[in-house]
Amino acid sequence: MNIHPTAVIDPEAQVHASTTVGPYAVIEKGVVIGPDCVVCPHAVVTGLTTIGARNTIGSFTNIGGPPQDLKYNNEPTRLVIGDDNQIREYVSIHRGTPGGHGVTTVGSGNLLMAYTHIAHDCVVGDHVIMANAATLGGHVEVADRVIIGGLTAVHQFVRIGEYAYIGGMSGLSKDVPPYVIMAGIRNQMRVTGINRIGLRRSGFTADDIKKLGQAYKIIFRSPELLLQEALAKTLAEIPDCEPVAKLVNFFATSKRGAVRMAGDDEE
């Protein structure tokens, strides 16, 4: 185990022998860190936090800190982080709350750039990119392969669907459907098209991307249709397409209401 002599590791913490811990890092009781991780100088890992394999924990991060919730009373809640994440400098990720999931979850293969924040009870999927100073409020759900631009704030309980692309300096108060490009703040949130480049890079077929484009025109570019009418028309005209069905289902299951306002197309 490569541990710098100035690092402070609680005897009851579990750190794999292959993990490197840098100068002045602090790893507290209850922490479990898997193989081949790097804990950079001055990082703090605390609470009931479990971290998988091959993660990089950047300098001055605070991983597993108590939730910013006035009702929290030091209950034993958890943070679980998967494998192969890059967690850059000054990132903060908080544990769950008893009133939420009791656990905050971060998947695998994510890039969390400097100063990003993941609040209590969030669920973050795999291969998510959060650019510098992007912030998630409590109970936010971020699906796989979402990109969130820098200085973006996401309101508590918001859901962001898979493969969505969020422009920088946005403020999300409603759910963001999967597969779309979106930017804006609160009542100015606008969807400007399907994330075609991201979908192509992720191996979506040309036919599925074309059908998602057709669905976009029906759902977002048909102001004469009520939402339920638009969803029904989408399924009737574009049957047997799994991504389209997921897009429709996202709207149907949204509790906060999903963004439907369209802006100037980027397509």
Results as ranks from 00 to 15, higher is better:
N2W: 00
A7D: 01
D10Y: 02
A13L: 07
H16T: 02
A17C: 01
S18K: 05
S18H: 07
T20C: 00
P23Q: 07
P23K: 01
Y24D: 09
V26I: 15
K29H: 12
V32M: 04
I33D: 07
D36F: 12
C40W: 03
P41V: 03
A43I: 01
A43T: 05
V44E: 12
L48H: 15
T49Y: 14
T50A: 15
G52H: 02
T56M: 03
I57A: 07
I57R: 00
F60P: 00
F60G: 00
N62G: 08
Q68K: 14
Q68V: 07
D69R: 12
E75Y: 10
P76E: 15
P76C: 13
T77E: 02
D84G: 06
R88I: 00
R88S: 03
Y90E: 01
Y90V: 01
V91W: 02
R95L: 11
T97Q: 13
P98S: 13
G99H: 09
G100N: 15
H101F: 09
V103W: 03
T104W: 07
T105Y: 04
T105H: 13
S108W: 03
G109A: 04
A114N: 12
T116I: 02
T116N: 09
I118D: 05
A119Q: 07
H120V: 10
H120K: 14
D126H: 12
D126N: 15
V128W: 02
V128P: 09
M130P: 06
M130R: 07
A131S: 15
A133P: 03
G137N: 12
G137W: 08
G137D: 15
G137L: 07
G138D: 14
G138F: 05
G138Y: 11
H139T: 08
E141L: 05
D144C: 03
D144W: 05
D144E: 01
R145W: 02
R145C: 07
I147W: 04
I148T: 08
G150V: 06
L151F: 14
Q156M: 11
F157P: 08
F157K: 14
F157W: 14
R159M: 08
R159T: 08
I160V: 13
G161T: 08
E162H: 13
Y163L: 05
A164T: 11
A164S: 14
Y165S: 11
G167D: 03
M169W: 00
P178L: 09
G184C: 11
I185W: 04
R186Y: 06
M189H: 04
V191W: 01
T192N: 14
T192E: 04
G193D: 10
G193H: 11
R196H: 13
R200P: 05
T205P: 05
A206K: 13
A206W: 08
A206E: 15
D208S: 09
K210V: 04
L212G: 07
G213V: 03
A215L: 04
Y216F: 15
K217M: 05
I219A: 06
I219Y: 10
S222F: 05
E224D: 15
E229R: 09
A230G: 12
T234P: 11
T234Y: 03
L235A: 11
A236C: 00
E237H: 02
P239N: 03
P239I: 12
P239G: 11
E242C: 01
E242M: 11
P243G: 09
A245W: 00
V248D: 11
T253W: 02
S254V: 10
S254H: 12
G257F: 10
A258V: 08
A258Q: 14
R260D: 09
G263F: 06
D265L: 13
D265Y: 00
E267K: 12
